[in-house]
Design a binder for these strands. Structure first.
Length: 250
DNA sequence: TTCCAGGCAATAC
DNA sequence: GTATTGCATGGA
């Protein structure tokens, strides 16, 4: 259950949370547009007159442009399950180096070769199987419309976060992505409960914000960036910098 | 050396 | 239905 509506029924009121708007405005002002999802061909920081911009392709919301870029985003969404992006990038580059960053090529690949290529991102036995299953599905997709969420969820290896990441960043469908970082931030701020479900949190964001895929993309990316700075698990809570959002909402 | 990272499915209660 | 466990690598 989400805090803020604990002691009364929502009645006709949507569980709008104005804090979520304030948080977004703060993060955007603080870090600027993040330009997610990362693509090998459009990676890195861009130089601007004021210095380096954090983010992958900030301001370009036409990406992914090509069918192969759409596939690359989906592939990354699977490979990054419980794994840091630098390791996923390694895996993607190994596929690219052998000319296999491509749905048809992966479909043709021997599973053992696929495992070897994606080894750096961990869980390679499971992930190779997931990638194979998804690739077969992808090749049969109707190119004129995005896949249905339920259909993605029915594939072995694709859970709610992976499905939503694909929909939001590959197919530009306005569906909010909840991840470990988002959960950590909301719980810490007291906006969500420790045992809020994926669906609870997703619904909270979607009912509090205009239904806009660019907004959803930026917001999720900003939460990840913020969590990396203030919510690292490794550093003890004492040695961690105080999160500025706590003061913003007080 | 140990802990962690942009989850998920299988299994156990 | 909810809680726990296995999956695996490279970086801090």
């Amino acid at each position: 259950m989400v805090l803020g509506i604990v002691n009364r029924k929502p009645l006709n009121r949507e569980p709008m949370n104005h804090h979520l708007i304030s948080i977004y405005e703060f993060l955007l002002k603080e870090y600027g547009p993040q330009g997610w999802w990362p693509l090998l061909g459009c990676s890195g920081r861009k130089a601007t007159p004021k210095g380096w911009v954090v983010g992958y392709h900030p301001g370009d919301y036409e990406l992914p442009r090509t069918r192969s870029q759409v596939f690359e985003v989906c592939l990354g969404a699977i490979l990054t399950q419980n794994t840091g992006w630098p390791q996923v990038e390694m895996a993607l580059r190994r596929l690219q180096a052998s000319g296999c960053l491509d749905a048809e090529r992966i479909w043709q690949m021997e599973i053992e070769d696929l495992k070897e290529a994606i080894r750096p991102c961990g869980y390679f036995n499971q992930k190779a199987k997931k990638v194979k299953i998804f690739t077969e599905y992808f090749l049969d997709l109707d190119r004129n419309r995005p896949p249905a969420r339920e259909e993605l969820l029915s594939l072995w290896g694709i859970g709610p976060e992976t499905a939503d990441s694909m929909l939001l960043y590959a197919f530009r469908v306005p569906t909010f992505v909840i991840d470990a970082y988002t959960r950590r931030i909301l719980t810490s701020l007291g906006i969500a409960d420790e045992k809020s479900s994926y669906h609870d949190l997703k619904t909270l964001f979607e009912q509090s914000l205009p239904r806009d895929f660019i907004l959803y993309q930026e917001y999720h990316a900003l939460l990840v960036e913020h969590a990396k700075r203030f919510y690292q698990k490794k550093s003890e809570s004492d040695s961690r910098l105080p999160c500025p959002l706590a003061r913003l909402l007080s």
